[in-house]
Design a protein around this nucleic acid. Structure first.
Ligand SMILES: [Zn+2]
Ligand SMILES: [Zn+2]
Ligand SMILES: [Zn+2]
Ligand SMILES: [Zn+2]
Lengths: 149, 149
DNA sequence: CTAGCGATGAGACTGATTCTCAGGCTAGTT
DNA sequence: AACTAGCCTGAGAATCAGTCTCATCGCTAG
């Protein structure tokens, strides 16, 4: 058998690995572990969460490598770095069919994903109108989650 | 004459000082200087920019005080803390009649303000639909400014 | 199998923000 | 005006996320 990966990788991991090799990156254990972990996520994780999860579940990866790899993936456009005003960045796999934004509870820090077509339309409309080459957008709604109210 | 302030304060400073006293805060030189400086701003400044500007123009204020005061003002809802993904927070006076969002140049860091009614409508519409008490929102468009393209 | 060079990670370093706590000053009180 | 409780300030230490350095590891082409 060619594959002996822990869990079968999804479309995202496949596409990501392809982009990585296209971009000239060699294979490496640290990067494979990060990609594998992100592949299982539907929403964003912080670098420290990634570090902890990797140490527990997959394979410990140095902090420097985690940040380096996340930056590479962000530049390749396969990972999005989102800043939710919590003093730390979060990273999530980019899946065009699951584009979404976030609701952040100011009390407990909970992060909830949502998507809305009219909102996206408004953003795209603006992007075309301004004298600015818009490459991405981030929308965060702050407030209190159901539990914290 | 009752007033000998450097420049006549605008509606924002007046309302802010009122809220501060309502909230039980005493007067103080550091806070007055920060409020006065913010009152002149139409868009966001970073804590360091505020520190430098105060040291030059108004009255030097300790860094700890600047952060403490900005946090108080943010909690009172008269200042908005905006995180534009530049590794530092920025703060701007909240003027309901000048609600806006930001375009950030990923190359030179330029920040440009914009506002859009359809976008706000979409956000408010979402706010009503989710099981979440939305208290604010932040929208950032990333890309390259006209100069950097 | 081996050389060449990218990949990795321990730990030092940076920069922003927060904390601590010893005075300074405001706002009532007498 | 003088007095005082307790908020207001700010210098400097402490934190913390994130970045850099560089010796070492391990792919992979040949
Ligand atoms: Zn998400
Ligand atoms: Zn909550
Ligand atoms: Zn602004
Ligand atoms: Zn620019």
């Amino acid at each position: 058998m060619a594959k002996t990966k822990k869990k079968k990788e999804s479309e995202w991991a496949t596409a990501t690995n392809e982009r990585l090799s296209e971009a000239g990156f060699r294979r490496g254990g640290a990067r494979a572990a990060v990609v594998s972990l992100l592949d299982e996520q539907s929403c964003a994780l912080s670098a420290y969460e990634i570090e902890d999860l990797l140490a527990q579940r997959e394979r410990a990866v140095g902090r420097a490598s985690i940040y380096r790899i996340l930056e590479e993936l962000d530049e390749l456009g396969v990972v999005a770095k989102v800043e939710l005003g919590q003093g730390q960045a979060r990273y999530e796999p980019v899946r065009p069919d699951h584009h979404h934004h976030h609701l952040v509870c100011d009390k407990c820090g909970a992060v909830i994903a949502f998507d809305d077509a009219p909102l996206e339309r408004a953003v795209h409309s603006i992007s075309k109108r301004v004298d600015f080459a818009v490459e991405g957008h981030e929308i965060v709604l702050h407030g209190l989650c159901a539990d914290c109210r």
